[in-house]
Amino acid sequence: MKKIAFFILPFIIFSIKAIAQDVTIDASLTETPISAKTLSSTISGSLVMPKNVKDKIPVVIIIGDAGPTDRDGNNAKTGIAGNTYKLLAIELGKKGIATVRYDKRFVGATTTSIKESQLHIEDYSDDAVSLINLLDNDQRFSKVVLFGHGEGALVAMLAGYDQSEKGFIIAEGFADRGEKIMTDAMKDKPKFLADEFKAIMDSLKKGKTTDKVDPSLYYIARPSIQPFVMSFCRYDPIKSLKVIKVPILILQGTTDLTVPVINGDRFKKAKSDASYMQIKNMNHILKDAPADPDQNTATYDKPNLPLKPELVNGIVEFISTKLK
């Protein structure tokens, strides 16, 4: 049986190995480069929008999942090659909604002056804020909407606090704090590794990193990503959600083997006025998939497999009816 991905930290290893094939942009759309600068990075992305637009249209910023995820939603180090974000850009574009998707730091055309050991989750939120500000000042767009996928949901929450976006979409986001997510991921590991990981986490709680780490734990706790782990564990997604003042859409697939349905349920319970879509047979990369692990993960390297139609329709309805 294939191993299910654990999408949290940079450069986590996944069992599928694939290279994404390109997907052609629909003839009714245009795709142009877009970039935004922060103090330490130049964020490079793609703007997709309908041709011959006469009026202002909404624009969605797609904030990617964990690790070195590129603008199309692919991750060469973990073998994810489903083109999820590019497919989403195309489908929303055909519905009259523009999108910006971008390469995260350490991947693609995005450049950064910091090293992995200097990376914190707040850097990712700064990247998103730079795009919010850029698009909010662009007269082609009527409103900015944040779409955070997986770990990107937390990044979006941090970026969207007290900003100018008009709507917020959580797609397959974790409701638990980082420490619990990571500790749960160690439950099937040998006891000596789980104990060492606990010791590392206990040290990080005190603000101290651990230099000597078993190589078997490098994927999740090597010294160079411990500062990121520390920053990631600092935030409670439920509390972060509660302070959001704009309309919220929660998207949760029933066959997501990485982020179980209980996460979407908890977000809805914490924010009762949020719209909540529980999409049957949708997996973590937003595609139709059964619960069987082998068949589910087989979709991860099928770049032309379409997204769940209910997902796209739900986003369009949310933007057209719930946002001012």
Rank of each mutant, 00 (worst) to 15 (best):
Glu31Tyr: 06
Ser130Asp: 14
Ser40Tyr: 14
Thr210Met: 08
Leu305Arg: 12
Tyr218Phe: 15
Ile114Phe: 08
Glu91Ser: 13
Asp301Arg: 03
Pro309Lys: 14
Lys205Glu: 02
Leu134Gln: 12
Pro215Trp: 06
Lys280Pro: 03
Ile200Gly: 00
Asp188Thr: 14
Lys115Asn: 13
Arg177Gly: 14
Ser203Cys: 07
Lys268Glu: 09
Ala289Ser: 05
Ile97Met: 11
Val243Thr: 15
Gly73Ala: 07
Asp202Gln: 10
Asp70Asn: 11
Ala98Tyr: 05
Ser320Lys: 12
Thr209Val: 15
Arg266Gly: 09
Ala89Ile: 08
Lys2Phe: 15
Glu116Pro: 03
Ser164Leu: 06
Ile315Lys: 00
Pro10Asn: 05
Pro215Ile: 15
Ile279Asp: 00
Val145Asp: 14
Lys212His: 13
Lys17Met: 08
Lys54Trp: 07
Lys206Asp: 05
Ile16Tyr: 14
Leu154Ile: 13
Val60Ser: 06
Pro237Cys: 13
Phe192Ala: 14
Lys206Leu: 09
Gly207Lys: 12
Ala81Val: 12
Lys245Ser: 15
Ile63Cys: 11
Ile61Met: 01
Lys324Arg: 11
Glu165Ala: 07
Gly96Trp: 15
Leu193Gly: 05
Ala159Tyr: 01
Pro303Tyr: 02
Ala98Gly: 10
Glu151Arg: 01
Leu158Asn: 07
Ile200Asn: 00
Ile25Cys: 10
Asn137Phe: 01
Ile170Gly: 01
Lys189Trp: 11
Val246Asn: 13
Asp294Gln: 11
Met201Asn: 10
Leu131His: 10
Lys180Asn: 05
Lys17Tyr: 04
Pro68Phe: 15
Leu311Ala: 06
Ile220Tyr: 02
Tyr218Met: 06
Val259Thr: 15
Gly314Ser: 05
Pro303Trp: 03
Asn52Arg: 12
Ile220Cys: 03
Gly82Thr: 07
Gln295Pro: 00
Ser216Thr: 04
Ala109Leu: 14
Ile200Lys: 01
Ser164Asp: 07
Val155Tyr: 09
Leu92Pro: 08
Lys115Met: 09
Thr24Val: 11
Lys54Leu: 13
Gly64Gln: 01
His120Lys: 05
Ala36His: 09
Gly148Met: 05
Pro306Cys: 03
Leu204Val: 02
Ile244Glu: 13
Lys208Gly: 05
Val144Gly: 04
Leu9Thr: 01
Ser203Asn: 06
Thr24Ile: 13
Arg105Trp: 07
Asp202Lys: 00
Pro190Gly: 10
Gly64Ser: 11
Asp301Pro: 00
Lys206Tyr: 03
Lys322Val: 04
Ile220Ser: 07
Phe7Arg: 00
Ala289Thr: 00
Glu31Ile: 09
Glu116Lys: 02
Ala89Phe: 11
Pro215Asn: 08
Lys271Tyr: 06
Met201Gln: 04
Ile8Lys: 01
Lys191Thr: 13
Leu323Asp: 05
Ile285Glu: 08
Asp176Ala: 12
Cys233Lys: 01
Lys56Gln: 07
Ser203Arg: 01
Ala27Met: 04
Val23Gln: 06
Val312Lys: 07
His120Trp: 07
Ser15Gly: 05
Ile250Asn: 00
Asp214Cys: 09
Val23Met: 09
